[in-house]
Design a protein around this nucleic acid. Structure first.
Lengths: 171, 171
DNA sequence: TATTGTTATACTCTATAACTATA
DNA sequence: TATAGTTATAGAGTATAACAATA
């Protein structure tokens, strides 16, 4: 199925990378392409968001708290597959710039419920506006259907990720 | 085009992630899905390659040197978009376990040409064998044409990455 | 003057472990 | 006994900057 549109953007097989280095077997490793794509997006993100001092993960946490007011740190850590201590550091940074605030839960006094502040909302809006250009820069290379298909492929890759914790490609 | 197969694996929109956290706008960010996919692949890689102590990047460098005997550190750094000092550290690790060796170039005595040793070849073979299962675990979720299409999509994302340096998703 | 490799250094992100306070 | 948060710490990976040797 869909064999009709598979090879149409083969783009001259990138056997070298500006220098004369051949990729060889690396060409066949899904994770290799995935990582390069990730790097490309991350670099563009950094250039675009320069000055905002908001990493992709911080941005994600900010959005998650906005979408889920009162969420706990552990909720977020699980969602983003991070350690709770790592999330602590991340939340501290956002709190340090008054983007979010902690409020002790009344039902369970162990929990700190997280909320986006006025400043945080402004930051999120600024970030979203900047990010729009960044996002468009990549999505413009695809039709709407292609984006949907790419995302569905990516979901197929991370779908089964049962539990686990942790970092990024790490490397 | 290809609208026919776009939504077919929608998989119940992952609005939550085991906890009740809704992803919200994050759903529409390409980099978010890319990163989760990257994390999933990396985690599986780590579990699969446990004990080998060979990170994906070290593995990539080993393969690159095998494919390009005599390549220099700067060649590899450019290819993988890393800093030359970072590549130095990486090469040191591989040399430290006798997987590769440096030989001063006779034409240009500034250059250190890199070669895979016997031990390195054995390591690469072991790694390739282990990795095969890891790779299959993900590729099995796609038809051959789908893999080709996914890779072509990913290439479209990192294609234009002109120069730049650096890390991974960083985050 | 530019390039390759090198070293030293600092920074960021992450995890682990131990602790507290609640439950 | 388990959970949420916290703190301190250590490790890995990376970049920056300065320097040596060579081109």
């Amino acid at each position: 199925m869909n064999s009709f549109d598979a090879p149409q953007d083969a783009q001259a097989s990138p056997s070298s990378s500006s220098t004369g280095v051949k990729l060889g077997e690396l060409e066949n490793i899904l994770g290799f392409h995935l990582r390069l794509a990730n790097v490309a997006v991350f670099q563009d993100y950094q250039v675009t968001m320069a000055g905002l001092s908001l990493t992709p993960k911080q941005f994600a946490v900010l959005e998650l708290i906005e979408t889920n007011p009162g969420a706990s740190q552990i909720d977020l850590a699980n969602c983003l597959r991070m350690d709770k201590a790592s999330m602590m550091a991340l939340v501290n940074k956002l709190e340090g710039r008054n983007a979010i605030e902690r409020r002790q839960s009344e039902n369970d006094r162990r929990r700190q419920e997280l909320f986006v502040t006025e400043d945080g909302l402004a930051l999120a809006n600024t970030a979203r506006n900047l990010r729009a250009a960044h996002e468009a820069r990549f999505k413009d290379r695809f039709s709407e259907d292609e984006v949907a298909q790419l995302v569905s492929y990516l979901r197929r890759i991370y779908a089964s990720t049962t539990t686990a914790l942790l970092d990024d490609d790490g490397e």
